[in-house]
Design a protein around this nucleic acid. Structure first.
Lengths: 139, 139
DNA sequence: CTTAGTGCAAACTGTTTGCAGAGGG
DNA sequence: CCCTCTGCAAACAGTTTGCACTAAG
């Protein structure tokens, strides 16, 4: 399995920059929409391909998170996320001193555990505002 | 929002039973394949529709978990999962005394947090066996 | 009887892939 | 100049939906 050369193309570079410049955890097509302003002829397939390549190369992270679309993160340090049940946005969350707590299961059912993901969900500040006064049920 | 009548059809009942009888967290089409043996004329759309209805009614749980297919769980009590990175199966995991630990973030970024999901990943017993002796890289 | 639920096929959403040509190193 | 990458379109996987018929209560 010889590691082949990864070229830093203009498209790839812009995708990487765009991803690093916010903490918004965009989906492939959110990224595509933003990048089109700068590079109008880029195709969605290129965005998908590069996100895959960049995450395999370890330059970005692919998030396994609620919702049906994949999300990507330019921040490589270990951290966790909050997911808004209403608008589906994803933010970072600070776990304080718990951050380094090694949360390991008593009984792993024979699994070799390689990692753990902690995800919070709830209502984001904007959606809280929008539903202020409403009686939203089921949440 | 008047709750309409949910009829317990033969299909729905079998789906519910099937889901309750194992801890395998099946996807819609795994369930479909199993149920077809008993009910050969059932359609995949019916399985999807019923899983949606049953989870809205709170009789089963829809899992937000790694992988691209939705998974469903007949166990309603709070528990967490392990995901096999190789074969994608999902098992329950026992967190021991940590189970009731209220893992709440120091700084929720203005979110109203309604819940938290903890997911482990790794290699399941079967895949461990299969890769025994191999030098698998990247895990 | 009424109206929720069914099977089927077709639509839809998010993602991946084959191909011929472009451009990074 | 080679070979990775690109844009495009078409394929794909998983899920949802419109419709006319069926069956639960």
């Amino acid at each position: 399995m010889i590691k082949n050369q990864m070229r830093m193309t203009h498209q790839r570079d812009i995708i990487l920059r765009e991803l690093r410049k916010s903490t918004a955890h965009p989906t492939a097509d959110e990224l595509y929409e933003r990048i089109k302003k700068e590079l109008p002829r880029i195709s969605l397939a290129t965005v998908y391909r590069n996100l895959e390549i960049l995450s395999t190369a370890g330059l970005i992270k692919k998030l396994e998170i609620s919702g049906r679309r994949k999300r990507f993160d330019g921040e490589l340090r270990r951290h966790h996320h909050v997911y808004c049940l209403l608008c589906h946005r994803v933010d970072n969350i600070d776990l304080g001193q718990e951050e380094n707590f090694q949360f390991l299961p008593a009984e792993a059912g024979g699994y070799r555990i390689t990692g753990c993901r902690i995800e919070f969900f709830g209502i984001c500040p904007d959606c809280k505002k929008k539903t202020q006064g409403d009686k939203k049920d089921g949440l």
